[in-house]
Design a protein around this nucleic acid. Structure first.
Lengths: 223, 223
DNA sequence: TGCATATTCAAATATTAGCTTGAATATGTG
DNA sequence: CACATATTCAAGCTAATATTTGAATATGCA
């Protein structure tokens, strides 16, 4: 085998992964799978896409060996092939945030339209969350909380928030988080909390970012 | 702006980077630019591609903000937009190596056809190189050596190796390296050295991997 | 100013990918 | 065994991409 053929073959292999990352819907799938395994139907529902199309994207990702499928009765459950894939997705997202001005522009535009101000000092917020100086609120669906959450966080899925406000302290700051910077659940939650007189802040990182920071992740009903 | 529109826009932005990584030639360009800046003509020559096509690929990468161009007289010199891009490329390469069996298969097939046996313990070799227990030989073109090399390494470009054998010690192990695992220059060098009676090993990592390990990189004619 | 060279652009073609629709497959249940 | 449901497959259309070729642009130098 000639060196040229060898190199072309190797780079073409790496490009298999690149190609699979070249589609918005597929990146959203990866982001969702970072929260935990999901069936095709659930993914399609969360993305607002047809099941057939979602299935197709999943197979492209499977072809690039980034996700794996497992039959569970009548359902097929997809998961990331390795935790390395989640870490890689975060690296890619971070690269996009630092290299593409548009990401920041779009985010600012979105937040301004909601009259939302983002907290600036991310690390300081991490420290307050980590040290338990605030009440941490996880507003994702219960199963995602069970699959992994910030230690000490309280689970109240967004849909139940209004009817369970009594469970939250009114004399202590509440920090709400969800799936990550481009998930809007925690934004909705802080809006609801603030209009009910609570002192609430949004924490824009998700559990995957938390793990990537090397911090402990609680599972099940643990702390 | 609706959350769905916002999310789609964000993921589409990240996909810009993904798309740019979905082509073998473009990944080779990134790999080469990790060694240092280059003009379009040089890149095209090193890849065996037409200048026009190389230029086109470079603009795709520039559109994804991964590379930057700078006019230098009659030439245009391209470089990585940030050292973060090089680190990211290495992460992607590593992901491909660990997730895609084919990468290993192709490499093994290529090496077996050359009757080459790769050293197994990479970290041990790094340690021997780092501690100066061996003579380290950089066989890349001189300008790449000047742009950054392993501290203590001797520079003898591959084309000059046969006529400069006398500069190398015959009583001490020589470890040759080049641009990285998919560059064949160090393989050719160890072949030449071994058939001339030297004790030679190939170090398959490049200067970018060395830097990513957090080790010091010498520049210019330093050490 | 005009020529030589490096790079980019534009047009054209072939290939590949995305999405939709409707059918096919596979599993669990009555 | 037949039915219901979840998932995948196949066909077809549209859109995007890779590559080549030839022309256009921009810079340095005489």
């Amino acid at each position: 085998m000639k060196p040229r053929v060898f190199k072309d073959a190797i780079y073409e292999q790496i490009a298999r992964i690149g190609k699979s990352l070249g589609s918005g819907p597929r990146l959203e799938i990866l982001d969702l799978l970072c929260q935990g395994p999901r069936t095709v139907e659930v993914l399609a529902g969360q993305m607002g896409q047809s099941v057939a199309n979602t299935s197709r994207h999943l197979q492209v990702l499977r072809g690039a060996r980034l996700v794996e499928a497992e039959r569970e009765g009548v359902y097929v459950r997809y998961r990331l092939a390795d935790s390395e894939v989640c870490a890689f997705f975060l690296t890619l997202r971070k690269l996009a945030e630092s290299r593409l001005l548009e990401v920041d522009e779009i985010t600012r535009e979105f937040l301004e339209a909601r009259n939302t101000m983002e907290p600036v000092d991310r690390d300081l917020l991490v420290e307050r969350v980590r040290s338990g100086k605030v009440t941490v609120l996880d507003v994702r669906p219960a199963e995602e909380y069970l699959a992994g959450h910030i230690p000490g966080a309280v689970s109240i899925p967004l849909e139940q928030l209004e009817e369970r406000l009594a469970e939250l302290p009114s004399d202590r700051e509440i920090v709400a988080y969800c799936r990550g910077p481009y998930c809007v659940m925690a934004l909705d939650a802080t809006d609801t909390l603030q209009s009910n007189g609570f002192e609430a802040t949004r924490f824009e990182e998700g559990i995957a970012d938390w793990r990537a920071r090397g911090l402990h992740v609680a599972v099940g009903s643990e702390g």
